[in-house]
C-alpha cells in the first residue's frame, strides 16, 4: 500500500490523495452583481457576501469529499470548517488571482483592483491577500499543490473544540504525506518545496483572521445583507 515501497514512478498521476483532491475541487462560481443595486461600497460588499455564501456551500460539500474527512465525527467536521472556512475561501481567491497583476479574482465576472477595494473599504484586506498571491506566484504554485494545501489548511485549523484529536491527526498526516510524496516526485530538484508551501500557512491564517474581523464589523453595521450560512460561520468565530 505504501507508495514509497513501489517501483519508481514516472508521472504525477500516481498520488492517489492528490488526484482525489483534484477531482473534489469545486467549480468556479460567478458573482453576478445585482444590476438593480446602485454602484458603491454596499453593492460591492453585498456581491462579495453573496458570493461567499454560495462558495461556502460548495466548500462544505468539497470537505465531505476529502479523503478521510468523513470518517471524523460530525462535531469535529463542524469544528474544522468553523475554524478554516475563511482560509479556504481566501486560498481559492488567491489561486484564481495568480495570473493577474495586483487584482483579485473573486469570480471570473468579479475582479477587483486596489482602487475598487479602497472604495469598498477593503484596501487593507486586498493588500494582505495580494501578499499571498505574490508569494505563491513567485513559487509557481501548481494546481496540485493548491488543492493539497487547502485541504491541509482545513485539517490543521487548530480548533479548540476537537473531540477526537487523534483522528484529526491521522487526516493531517495523510494530507501532509500526500504533499511530501507529490513534491518528492514532481519537484525532486527542491527538497525544501513542501516546507516552503507549509510556511505560507501562517500568512493565510493571519489574513483570514483579518477578513473575519472585517466582515464581523460589516455585519454589526447592518447595512449589508448577508445570507444565513455566511452569518452562521461569522458568528462561529
Amino acid at each position: 500500500q505504501h507508495h514509497r515501497n513501489r517501483s519508481p514512478r514516472s508521472s504525477k498521476d500516481e498520488n492517489k490523495v492528490v488526484n482525489l483532491l483534484l477531482e473534489a475541487e469545486p467549480e468556479r462560481v460567478c458573482a453576478m452583481p445585482d444590476p438593480a443595486l446602485p454602484d458603491g461600497d454596499i453593492k460591492a460588499l453585498t456581491t462579495l457576501c453573496d458570493l461567499a455564501d454560495r462558495e461556502l456551500m460548495l466548500n462544505i460539500s468539497w470537505a465531505k469529499h476529502l479523503p478521510g474527512f468523513s470518517s471524523l465525527c460530525l462535531s469535529d467536521q463542524m469544528s474544522l470548517l468553523q475554524s478554516a472556512w475563511m482560509e479556504i475561501l481566501i486560498l481559492r481567491v488567491v489561486f484564481r488571482s495568480l495570473p493577474c497583476e495586483d487584482r483579485l479574482v473573486f469570480a471570473d465576472d468579479y475582479v477587483m483592483d486596489a482602487e475598487q477595494a479602497k472604495s469598498a473599504g477593503l484596501l487593507e484586506l486586498h493588500l494582505a491577500i495580494l501578499q499571498l498571491v505574490r508569494r505563491y506566484r513567485s513559487m509557481g504554485l501548481e494546481r496540485e499543490e493548491f488543492v493539497t494545501l487547502k485541504a491541509i489548511a482545513l485539517a490543521n485549523s487548530d480548533s479548540m473544540h476537537i473531540e477526537d484529536v487523534e483522528a484529526v491527526q491521522v487526516l493531517q498526516d495523510s494530507l501532509h504525506e500526500a504533499l511530501l510524496d507529490y513534491e518528492s516526485v514532481v519537484h525532486a530538484e527542491d527538497p525544501r518545496r513542501a516546507g516552503k508551501l507549509i510556511m505560507t500557512l501562517p500568512l493565510l491564517r493571519q489574513t483570514s483572521a483579518k477578513a473575519v474581523r472585517h466582515f464581523c464589523s460589516i455585519k454589526q453595521d447592518g447595512r449589508v445583507p448577508m445570507h444565513k450560512l455566511f452569518l452562521e460561520l461569522l458568528e462561529a468565530n
Binding site: 490523495v17 456551500m57 462544505i60 469529499h65 460530525l74 463542524m78 470548517l81 450560512l229
Partner: peptide
C-alpha cells in the same frame, strides 16, 4: 450545536464521502 444548524444540515446531507 443549535447555533450551527445550517452547517450541521449541509454536512449531513452532502453526498459521496470518500474514505481512505
Amino acid at each position: 450545536k443549535e447555533k450551527h444548524k445550517i452547517l450541521h444540515r449541509l454536512l449531513q446531507n452532502s453526498s459521496s464521502p470518500v474514505d481512505l
